[in-house]
Write a protein that binds this DNA or RNA. Structure first.
Lengths: 346, 346
DNA sequence: GTGAAAGCGCTAACAG
DNA sequence: CTGTTAGCGCTTTCAC
């Protein structure tokens, strides 16, 4: 016996499909005995409602779509676990889609999920996304969207981010306090929110400590580290800078690992020649050589919060909502890669 | 104007839905002019067929389900990219589900995906799965399933794995050639295929080099590293073993990182006190302290191959198939963590 | 060459 | 309390 439907139950019990349907959902208007009969039979035959039929009928799917740049990134995989923890508790399934930092793929994923009638979207923008029309249009048609991590500037909805400014400030200030003054910043595409906020934190820390800002110390990687050459060029430019920086504050898992890798390939030592603090959630940070100082984001909690926002939006669509932009605190973990070296270079 | 349906097109063009349907799929029996009209209008209105309606009608979804232990694992995230690369090219979407090494969650995910009418399943077993009835039942109902990485023993279908035996043999032999003789093995739950195959490779290498096998050097972590205590106990038992091993051959990303972490916490040096080779795809292996020697699997290719098998199964279901078990070669990358130390301990 | 009708599995408005 | 009917979007006989 294959997959069983309401019809099969109805036939077997000599009832109409509607009676069975009502019985299964425990409708008050069904005779207790009939109910029992239906329930028992359904149980015995291991009946499961067809979610596709339900989706078609109700125009929703009890699932939420997640569109992120890359799964193979500690921040995002942690965030996904946070997302799932809330979603499953509240009866939603999670469908994950990667954009691989491409606008095109973000667009395709978005359309696909929308057609699949996900009840809401959780988005962290690709490195290429400046046009947000596809999201705006869906939202205007009633699809709730919550952004997290990489959020758009002028877009009215809930947003969940880490406190990128404060995190970058703290990371940079730590380097300053260690005695470094020539501090570079290796970062993601300039138009991303995380880039801007971290940059501001970095600049502010320098300013507050009377260190002039040198634009040639700031390197953007417009593909967020997806293209090896790009990072390589950026890092090499820093290394061969006439006034080589003594420390680099780098953003993102991939940027940070590539950066470390290149510095070592060039035969320089960390932190003696160049110190590093990464804005990253790398799980293996403490195992790196040297152990990596890192500003980490509460990825799991960010995923959870974003999901709570989203499901609230889904479940009370009519409520007058005051959209929120939540910032969660980052945490600076100091390890060897940023400790003051004995060398005196200032 | 919201989401547009065939009905809307029919109304606008004064045609019947069936004509529109046929026109859209280019049926030969439709007047060229009508076709053009329909196509143009559909294009202009940005019509997209409702995949849910199609799924209901055709009892399939043009998507494949992937059930893996953990996304936050370099091997699996690389495999997913391989899977997606093939799937998208052949017109399938990919739905990812994690089992978090739990049989229960594997079961739930499987049911869910089956109900969602995925056209096939790509599975790497959870660390708890010894009962495979849920897969067998679905397969007997016609749902193609392909296993990869962690595959069941006696189960007739395509399977894709790395050559775990050869990889483990090579890794262990490398340690032996470096002069290590007391070599321990830290591994996953004993009933998993990967565990067995790697264990055999490890043993065979020892045997071939005349080293007796000491069962107390073999530690299974039945939760595959998901439970910190378990790994900790295993590693501590090795470290405090009356004849402390001089090298550990460890399996899996998480096991390996935990192992390194604990050895260092105990104040031992790698490789001087204990050398390490990991059977792992850790992307940051070369950045660890010390750089980690690793047996790596061709994760991307494994994902691709498994997907090709699966889609072939989906698309020619009637064909008499000779099920294959493909083994792909691993690669040993030697780095500092396994280099012969100057100390002489044998 | 085109339309009417049925059906995929389910729910709900409407009748009894 | 239960059955009939219609409809979600689409494809596909079966008629004309």
């Amino acid at each position: 016996m294959g997959i069983i439907t309401i019809k099969d139950i109805a036939k077997a019990l000599n009832l109409s499909t509607s009676t069975v349907s009502r019985a299964l959902r425990g409708s008050y208007e069904i005779n207790a005995e009939t109910k029992r009969l239906v329930m028992e039979y359904a149980e015995r035959m291991n009946y499961r409602p067809n979610p596709i039929a339900l989706s078609l009928k109700e125009n929703r799917s009890r699932s939420i779509g997640v569109i992120i740049p890359e799964i193979a990134n500690n921040f995002f995989s942690q965030a996904i676990n946070g997302i799932e923890s809330i979603a499953y508790n509240r009866g939603y399934h999670v469908v994950i889609s990667q954009n691989h930092e491409s606008y095109e793929r973000e667009l395709v994923s978005t359309q696909y999920l929308a057609q699949r009638r996900v009840d809401g979207l959780l988005v962290s923008l690709s490195g290429e996304s400046n046009d947000l029309e596809h999201f705006k249009e869906l939202q205007s048609k009633g699809l709730p969207i919550v952004f997290f991590d990489r959020v758009p500037q002028d877009y009215i909805t809930h947003k969940v981010t880490a406190d990128n400014f404060a995190g970058a400030y703290e990371g940079t200030e730590h380097l300053i306090q260690q005695g470094y003054r020539r501090i570079a910043h290796l970062t993601s595409p300039s138009w991303l929110s995380i880039t801007y906020e971290r940059l501001e934190g970095y600049k502010k820390a320098l300013q507050n400590h009377g260190i002039p800002i040198d634009e040639s110390y700031i390197k953007y990687c417009s593909h967020g580290g997806m293209i090896a050459d790009e990072v390589e060029n950026a890092v090499l430019e820093l290394i061969h800078h006439p006034n080589r920086p003594h420390a680099i504050f780098s953003a993102g898992d991939r940027l940070t690992t590539s950066c470390i890798s290149l510095i070592r390939k060039e035969g320089l030592r960390i932190p003696d020649d160049i110190a590093i603090v990464g804005f990253t959630n790398l799980v293996s940070a403490h195992l790196l050589n040297p152990a990596l100082s890192a500003v980490t984001q509460p990825a799991y909690e960010m995923g959870q919060l974003a999901t709570e926002f989203l499901i609230d939006l889904i479940e009370r669509p009519k409520a007058t909502i005051r959209f929120e932009s939540k910032r969660l605190d980052t945490r600076l973990v100091i390890r060897e890669s940023s400790l003051k070296s004995s060398k005196n270079f200032n």
